[in-house]
Structures are given as C-alpha cells and as structure tokens.
C-alpha cells in the first residue's frame, strides 16, 4: 500500500471539468512529478489534496503510522497537522512582514503551542517551554542553513530576493514536519543556476528525510532530472504515467505538448 493514494479524483467548476478521474500515488523516498500544459488541472489537484477545494468525486487516502486518513473529509489545517501534507504555493505565500526565522517557527506552531501548554507555560517561562522553543529554533536554524539563508534569518521574509523566498518557503513547509511535501512550481521565475540549486535541494530532501515529494513543474530540465515517477495531465485527465524516459517517449505526451516537451528536455 502506498503512502498516499489518489483515486478517481474529479472536480468541476460550474460546467468545466477541471480534474477528470485522475489517480496516482506517492511513496516515501520518491519524487513524483505532475506535469502538463497550462490549465491541465495540476494546481487544482494540489488544492484538493491540501483541502482548499473539496473534490466532487474521488478518494484521497493517506496511510501512515498504521492509520488511514481520508483527506477529502478533512479540513485543510487538519490535513497538514494530522495527515502530514505540507505545501508551497505557485505565487509564494510567506508571511512577508515576519522574519525568515519567525516564518519557520510559525510552521512549528502546533508542537510549540502544545509545549507552551496553550501559552500558560510560556507565560510563566517554564523550563519545559523554554527547551521546546530552543529545539524549534535549532530546527529552524538547521533548515535555514540547508537552504543557505542563515545570513538572512532576522530579515523580513518579504524583503528577500525572489529565489531566496522560494527556498525559504520550502524550508518552512519542511519545518511543519511533513510526510508528503507538495511543491507547486518551485522553479518558476528562477534562473538556471538557481534552478540547479533547487533540484539539488529537492533531491537532498528526498535522500535525507525519506519523505514523499509531489512536484508540479514546468521546467522540464528540473522535472526530468530529479523525478522518479511522472504523471502527465492534459485537460484535467491523466494521459500518461511512468518513469521520465517512458513519459518522454510517449506519443500522447508529445502530442499534448506539441513537441515542446522534447525541446525543453
């Protein structure tokens, strides 16, 4: 059984079928990419997974630690908290007026809030909370280091350069302690050097954290280089699935991209 299984996922907006009977799965230690032309329904799939939209049909099952979570029945915040899905956004959603470090601490809110005994222990400055906070800061600092932003820890997130904001958002999602990390076009707007660094970071996360990574991406060089498994959507439906080499050779995929997939790769 897979860590995350999506079956028959369908969602309609008015008359438009945005996602049509799509199914795929995600495994620990594997990078699964969802690709497709603009408007293929990729982000809509993510929005269903993370609880922002409710699908009309379909089942999304997360299995971890011997428990099953039916995502379509859960509130968005509980999906992140209990099932362990964390995501980034196509148009970066950091907390712009808070510092990079604060952003990473907010991601650890639930754990810290419990440790502060709903603020009581925190107000009294009890050792139990102080040590929990210290651990959270250490974890945040470690992630800042891994994304190369230690120097900007106390800078406002909104004032960071674009590429740094992208990496900070990934670090923030990781600080939430996910089992599935959903990245929505993480390479959008990055230059080739930054894209390469990003690919290295994602691979590093897969290798060291052993979690599942779900990736929506347009940059085919990134996708083909790091993905273990690729799902291709077009007009809301799944048209192909498989390894990068398999997908690259699939005529349906080439047709959908009008040949651009080959050019980009």
């Amino acid at each position: 059984m897979s860590l995350l299984t999506v079956e028959h996922l369908t969602i309609r907006f008015g008359g438009l079928v945005a996602v049509d009977d799509v199914g795929f799965s995600a495994e620990d230690g594997r990078i699964t990419a969802i690709i497709g032309p603009n408007g293929a329904g990729k982000t809509t799939v993510f929005n269903c997974l993370t609880g922002f939209y409710k699908p009309d049909v379909g089942r999304m099952t997360m299995r971890r630690d011997g428990r099953e979570y039916l995502l379509e029945r859960m509130d968005g915040f509980r999906i992140a908290r209990e099932a362990g899905l964390a995501r980034t956004f196509q148009n970066i959603r950091l907390f712009p007026r808070m510092t990079a470090l604060e952003n990473l601490l907010v991601a650890q809110h639930n754990e810290l809030h419990r440790a502060s005994f709903h603020s009581l222990a925190g107000l009294l400055g009890l050792a139990r909370y102080r040590s929990a906070e210290k651990m959270a800061v250490e974890r945040a600092a470690a992630w800042l280091d891994r994304v190369g932003l230690t120097h900007a820890a106390d800078d406002e997130a909104g004032s960071l350069p674009y590429g740094d904001q992208r990496r900070l958002e990934i670090a923030r999602a990781m600080c939430a302690g996910p089992r599935v990390l959903c990245l929505d076009e993480p390479a959008a707007g990055l230059n080739p050097k930054e894209s390469a660094d990003l690919a290295a970071l994602i691979r590093d996360i897969k290798a060291r954290e052993k979690i599942a990574v779900l990736l929506i991406e347009h940059d085919m060089s990134v996708v083909m280089e790091i993905s273990d498994h690729i799902v291709v959507l077009d007009h809301g439906a799944k048209i192909a699935e498989g390894t990068p080499d398999h997908v690259r050779a699939d005529p349906a995929v080439i047709a959908a991209y009008l040949g651009t997939a080959e050019d980009a790769a």
Partner: peptide, 22 residues
Amino acid sequence: LPIGRAWEALREDEIACRALGI
C-alpha cells in the same frame, strides 16, 4: 509565544497558515 506569532502570521496570510496546520 507561539500564539502571538500565529496571530501575526494569520494577519499576514491566512491561507498559508492553514497549509501549515494552524
């Protein structure tokens, strides 16, 4: 404290808060 940071985070971006399990 965490609650105070959560307040400010909520002011900045509620959608991001939900995606982080708050």
